[in-house]
Write a protein that binds this DNA or RNA. Structure first.
Length: 429
RNA sequence: GGAGAGAUGGCAGAGUGGUCGAAUGCACCGGUCUUGAAAACCGGCAUGGGUUUAUAGCCCAUCUAGGGUUCAAAUCCCUAUCUCUCCGCCA
């Protein structure tokens, strides 16, 4: 959510900055609503003020033992006028709120302008692309060849876009997640967290999934009565960040660095035709998430740090990748700036997203009222929130399997993972 | 699932219809004292919004949330959520 005061006083500027990311802010409507709000609010408050004064004098008269009947008569119309004004104002605020909650974050000034992913800017590449002297297979073929990926069972049990993993491949998947969590906690200073996979509606508003992106989520039916059921998390960012909803932390506690290994559930509505083969796009996938909650002045340094933390995982796994800065048109709803890490997939002969690291500045914390008490101003101020995948475990498995494949269909195990695999150096049938 | 109790400022905790935005304590900030610190003492100290050049004043809202009663609600009524205690069930 954007700062209401900024939105009010600098509508034109806000609209211009939002246009850069392809969002059309309805300036005229906003101005009109704002004008109405102002006059209605002033009127409402005047009525309230009058009611307060009169009620107070009635109380005082009664305390003196005077007859309050004439005073009561004077109040007459006031109540219903006030009720009407309050109702009108509430309705108006609802409308303004709806716009505010649906407006994406402003891009940081360092973000390159562009309309879609084709205009993202490559920051750098790491590692050398492997060459194979045999015909490269994709992870589906390799995984099925190793009897480690069972798409058929998954379809039977649940449907498309689910996976059953088996044997050493399942173990490799688990090893990857543990390696990532260990690296973040032992080397990067994060605290390991275990969090709920079902969250309430308020949490989804807090991080910005609602009100706009409800169709991307899986929602549960409430077990009883009407009301809103809980939703499966699309990322651990939701529970982790929302821990600080409606909190005021001491400045000394900053920065807060948390990591969690959780499944992520996405309905992927609107992408039915894409990546139908394999593990790339699943309704359920594991991810190790990093979240930082920091002082506003530190957030861009934290963004660089987090990108480095995610890169470090790929480097230790010796997987070639590149880093791109997302352009204004390709960024997510709440992000002010985002880096994507893209890992090399030999079978696709291209780089594919494996991590996304974003600084949301105060966009989420304003929605959540996540604040710290400033040692300077002594006042509560909004924190900055950042999140990043470190990494998407399923896609990392894909990258390991494809980059470490051998001619006979076996897969070598990256050296950093071998201790997590009981010393195993390769997986074969 | 059954029975009961509760939710108040950063925290703890008073307040059961009227001058209560809310006692008190802790924490925090400023000061006195002290070589310095601690202690003691004095003072200050909620958040959001409107108006405004103003972080000055004035006004409004907020005592879990949403409804209701009333001239007037932290206080009374209803609903929801959450917490705690006891019983049942359960991994």
């Amino acid at each position: 959510m954007l700062d209401a005061k900024y939105l009010r006083s600098e509508v034109e500027q806000a609209a211009e900055r939002l246009l850069a990311r392809g969002y059309q802010l309805d300036v005229n409507k906003l101005k009109e609503l704002e004008e109405q709000r102002k006059s209605l609010q002033v009127r409402t408050q005047q009525l309230q003020s009058e009611r307060n004064t009169r009620s107070k004098s009635i109380g005082q008269a009664k305390a003196r033992g005077e007859d309050i009947a004439p005073l009561l008569a004077e109040v007459g119309q006031l109540g219903s006028d006030l009720d009407q004004a309050k109702a009108d104002l509430a309705q108006l605020l609802l409308e303004i709120d709806a716009i505010a909650l649906s407006t994406p974050n402003l891009p940081h000034e360092s973000v390159p302008a562009g309309k879609d992913e084709s205009e993202n800017v490559e920051l750098h590449r790491w590692g050398s692309i492997p060459s194979f002297d045999f015909e490269v297979k994709d992870h589906v073929a390799i995984g099925e060849g190793l009897d480690g990926l069972d798409f058929k069972s998954a379809v039977k049990i649940s449907g498309s876009r689910f996976i059953v993993m088996k044997g050493q491949v399942a173990r490799l998947h688990r090893a990857l997640a543990q390696f990532m969590v260990d690296t973040h906690t032992l080397e990067h200073g994060y605290t390991e967290m275990y969090v709920p996979y079902l969250v309430n509606e308020a949490s989804l508003y807090g991080t910005g999934q609602l009100p706009k992106f409800g169709e991307d989520l899986f929602h549960t039916q409430p077990a009883t009565e009407e009301g809103v059921g809980m939703s499966l998390i699309p990322t651990a960012e939701v529970p982790l960040t929302n821990m600080y909803r409606d909190e005021i932390v001491d400045e000394a506690q900053l920065p807060i660095q948390m990591t969690a290994h959780t499944p992520s559930f996405r309905s992927e509505a609107g992408s039915y035709g894409r990546d139908t083969r394999g593990l790339i796009r699943q309704h359920q996938f594991d991810k190790v998430e990093m979240v930082q909650i920091v002082h506003p002045e530190q957030s861009y340094q934290a963004l660089e740090d987090m990108r480095q933390h995610a890169e470090n995982i790929l480097q230790k796994l010796e997987l070639p990748y590149r880093v791109v800065t997302l352009c204004t048109g390709d960024m997510g709803f709440g992000a002010a700036k985002t880096y994507d890490l893209e890992v090399w997939l030999p079978a696709q002969d291209t780089y594919r997203e494996i991590s996304s690291v974003s600084n949301c500045e105060d966009f989420q914390s304003r929605r959540m009222q996540a604040r710290f008490r400033s040692t300077v101003s002594k006042k509560p101020e909004l924190l900055h929130t950042l999140n990043g995948s470190g990494l998407a475990v399923g896609r990392t498995l894909v990258a390991v399997v494809e980059n470490y494949q051998q001619a006979d269909g076996s897969v070598k195990i990256p050296s950093v993972l071998q201790s997590y695999m009981g010393g195993l150096t390769q997986i074969s049938l």
